[in-house]
Design a protein around this nucleic acid. Sequence first.
DNA 1: CTACGTGCAAAAAGTTTGCAATCGC
DNA 2: GCGATTGCAAACTTTTTGCACGTAG
Lengths: 134, 134
Amino acid sequence: MERQTRQRSAVLGALTGSGQTLTPQEICHLAQRGVPRLSLSTVYRQLKQLLEAGEVVPADLPGQPTRYEAVCELAHGRADHHHHHFHCDACDRVYPIHTCPGPMEDLVPRGFQVQRHDLTLHGRCAECASTGPA
Amino acid sequence: MERQTRQRSAVLGALTGSGQTLTPQEICHLAQRGVPRLSLSTVYRQLKQLLEAGEVVPADLPGQPTRYEAVCELAHGRADHHHHHFHCDACDRVYPIHTCPGPMEDLVPRGFQVQRHDLTLHGRCAECASTGPA
DNA sequence: CTACGTGCAAAAAGTTTGCAATCGC
DNA sequence: GCGATTGCAAACTTTTTGCACGTAG
């Protein structure tokens, strides 16, 4: 069903090309390098389709606008790869964390069923930590 | 500086009274039982003051509107008590988790400095798990 | 009495949708 | 050519702000 439009490849290209976890705004700016008249609505619409197609996954960090990341770049080729995020408070970039502290079932009271967990680390990335160790 | 207004106690009362983690909307509805003409703006303004006063802490769950919780009820009396959250996908309630999987420094690449982490568990709470085990 | 707090309405920010024009297939 | 996709503008949601009135101290 999905048509191959310039906008679609520009959106996906912005994500895979950056190898990062981006907000819709950032995606729009990046993708406009290839398609100048690209609108933010189209970015949202394409993101929705790409989500359903499993080519992109959302990364909802607490207290921030939803970001998106390309599956192929960040998930090492596995569509369902479980990973977490590191948010640099200094440069506001988001890095994938491919390790996990392990099962969480023990943390909850009796009777609770844990199906999923999100972990977000905050701090300073290597670059910002070395630049200005505030 | 902070004045003791009916609105202020209604907002704080809604949080402490419920013992839950609530959205500003929920707080407003609850608090309007005592102050019917309470406006949502005032809820936000009081929440901001209560945050600064350390009587309330925000709980930003990924992909959801920000919720707030009263410190005294949920943090066992310690203003800086570190805790996490369990979100029930069925009833949409949020429960505090007072345990923690432990230090997270090992998860990040060399050079990264971890200062903080947020953990959100998702699943079904005891009540919903027993009611209808979907 | 005076200044902070309140309610309302409007604004800002992020996201979704309606619609006519466009473009892939 | 047909129908999905696009761009624009308007709607919607969550949160913030401007302003005149109310009220605590």
